[in-house]
Amino acid sequence: MKKTNQKYTLITGSSQGLGKAFAEICAKKMQNLILISLPNENNGKLAKELEEKYGIKAIQYEADLTKKEDLYKVIAFVKNYRINMLINNAGIGGAKRFEDATLTYLSDMVLLNILSLVTLTHQLLPVLKQEEEAYILNISSVAAFAPMPFKTVYPASKAFVYSFSRGLKSELEYSNIHVAVAHPGPMPTNENVTKRVKALTGMVKYSVLTPKETAEICLEKLLQKKTVIIPGKFNWFNSLLLRFLPIPLQLKILNGKLKPEASEIQSNG
């Protein structure tokens, strides 16, 4: 297949929540899109709607990025296109007692949040380097700044994304590629998450932004070539608390907040 002359933005996890918001905003900016999502998530419908609404090209590709064969099929496919922006958004989380979580659940989280992100970035660097200017945006979380009981693997995976992104940014400092990492706070992204977000109390409740608000801030800061992006003043303040409060105190507070959520999910499951 001959490589197209048009440039594309590649977004993983693009069918709902933050990924969908990124797709809408990028399309509005007249960026052509390659939208990656799980099968049967109406990503084709989204691609068609964005094409018709904004007059851009939107290509949908369905794949399970936790599966090695799917991941490498995505890579082989997208290498046929000129890509000047990679948004590694796909990820999974949730609250569960570690011993109650299945190994499949934990493995999928590591495979999606870490391995697929690293693999896509590594394999697409040569493609991005062919452009005059290119961008990588990796989506971490405010959770990256603290260990969390009843989430254990999720914040650890997001801490990896933060560390990886900062290191890669330094390596590519004098190249054509700008690397940024974003740390969103709580967002109503799907039905289950929305229910949990609505139950938030205290300062955390005021840190909630919509996916659209979060995506707008992230893209604006990315194009300004900021390295660490924390959308929202309350999320920025919360990130400071998480980074500078003594860890035993953090864990005590988070244990009290997250244990009921994990217990409720366990009883409903």
Rank of each mutant, 00 (worst) to 15 (best):
N176G: 04
N176E: 01
N176C: 02
N176R: 11
I177W: 05
I177Q: 09
H178R: 00
H178F: 06
H178S: 10
H178Q: 05
V179D: 00
V179I: 14
V179A: 06
V179H: 06
V179F: 06
A180W: 08
A180C: 04
A180V: 00
V181F: 10
V181Q: 04
A182Q: 02
A182G: 10
H183A: 14
H183N: 11
H183C: 08
H183W: 04
P184K: 13
P184Q: 05
G185M: 00
G185C: 07
G185L: 05
P186H: 02
P186L: 09
P186S: 06
M187E: 07
M187K: 13
P188V: 02
P188N: 09
P188H: 07
T189P: 03
T189V: 15
T189K: 04
T189H: 12
N190A: 03
E191L: 11
E191H: 11
N192S: 14
N192D: 12
V193G: 05
V193C: 02
V193A: 14
T194A: 15
T194P: 02
T194H: 11
T194N: 03
T194L: 11
T194W: 13
K195N: 12
K195A: 14
K195M: 08
R196K: 15
R196P: 04
R196S: 13
V197F: 00
K198R: 10
K198Q: 03
A199S: 14
A199Q: 14
L200I: 06
L200W: 02
T201D: 14
T201H: 11
T201Q: 10
M203V: 15
M203I: 15
V204L: 15
V204T: 15
V204Y: 01
V204M: 12
K205S: 13
K205G: 03
K205L: 14
Y206S: 11
Y206H: 15
S207P: 04
S207Y: 02
S207V: 01
